[in-house]
């Protein structure tokens, strides 16, 4: 064994338990075909989004009234929509919006939710229960009302819709992290840190968060698929992405009016939503199996 390897293995031994756990998880993901399938789909989505300008044959927003509603053909592989825009190009550019949706919602919802949940779980007491009661309130609040009211107040736009969706996702993460934090705070290494007078934020950051990471990851993966679907629903009632943005949900919503005569308008963006949502979901599903302590060893 070369010295470097010895050092590495020494490093591994010194790692905190959650880091080891995390590396083990990644190894399991590699071996799980379902998880890999999900990863492939999501990677494709990211690649399509990044290289959209190169992949798209036409502009996603330029209208061409003479070509409206033309069926799939050699020049427009997926046909054109009611404004004569190329659907393939719009679906490709739509990948960018979908990623924006997934990332924004999960980052905001997950970060805020985790912080609140970890704080509440670690502190317990009055502060903790107030936080969790507020979370209950948000959870009980009909998500769509919130989205609609925000949209009506600030004007419907994708960003406002995302803000609203992220907001209603917060309690989900808070509850999850809260539960885990309650048990983590009794762990020896946390007690040790506390006895060494480590500050509360330090403990939460270094011990509580990492311990919750894997389950937050699962929720976040599933949450990305859900966020895309929710944004699509909001667009459907006119509160999400605004024209001419090529958001898939908005495209399906517009296209449904033409469904009986011009099936391609709603079908292709619908399929795009389906594939991506399935991708996130099977990845999340597989991750859950992998991370399940009873099933992993």
């Amino acid at each position: 064994m070369c010295p470097g390897a010895a050092e590495r293995s020494y490093g591994l031994r010194e790692m905190s338990p959650w880091m080891k756990d995390f590396l083990f998880t990644i190894r399991l993901v590699y071996r799980n075909p379902l998880a890999m399938a999900g990863i492939v789909i999501i990677t494709c989505l990211v690649l399509v989004a990044v290289f959209a300008p190169l992949l798209a044959p036409y502009s996603p927003i330029d209208i061409s009234l003479d070509e409206r509603l033309s069926p799939p053909s050699a020049s427009h592989l997926l046909g054109t929509d009611e404004m004569g825009r190329d659907i393939l190009s719009r679906v490709i550019y739509g990948a960018r919006i979908s990623i924006r949706i997934a990332v924004t919602v999960v980052t905001i919802g997950g970060a805020v939710g985790s912080i609140l949940g970890a704080t509440a779980g670690y502190l317990r007491g009055r502060m903790g229960s107030i936080i969790m009661r507020v979370m209950d309130m948000i959870l009980a609040f009909p998500a769509l009302v919130l989205c609609m009211v925000l949209a009506a107040a600030l004007g419907p736009s994708l960003n406002n819709a995302l803000l609203a969706i992220a907001f209603v996702q917060i309690p989900k993460y808070a509850r999850l992290v809260h539960g885990q934090a309650l048990s983590l705070r009794e762990k020896h290494y946390v007690l040790a840190a506390r006895s060494m007078a480590a500050s509360t934020p330090w403990i939460i950051w270094h011990h509580i968060f990492p311990g919750c990471l894997s389950s937050v990851l699962v929720l976040a993966t599933m949450g990305m698929g859900e966020a895309i679907l929710l944004a699509a629903s909001l667009s459907f009632i006119g509160l999400g992405a605004q024209p001419p943005e090529p958001e898939w949900g908005a495209m399906v919503a517009m296209g449904r009016q033409y469904l009986m005569d011009h099936w391609w308008l709603a079908t292709f963006p619908g399929l795009a939503i389906l594939v991506v949502a399935v991708g996130f979901n099977i990845l999340g599903d597989a991750l859950r199996d992998i991370l399940d302590p009873r099933l992993r060893r």
Partner: peptide, 15 residues
């Protein structure tokens, strides 16, 4: 079953 179920959760309701 898993695939069928996932299709359900991933397809927009209005569709």
């Amino acid at each position: 079953t898993r695939v069928l179920a996932l299709l359900g959760v991933s397809t927009p309701v209005f569709w």
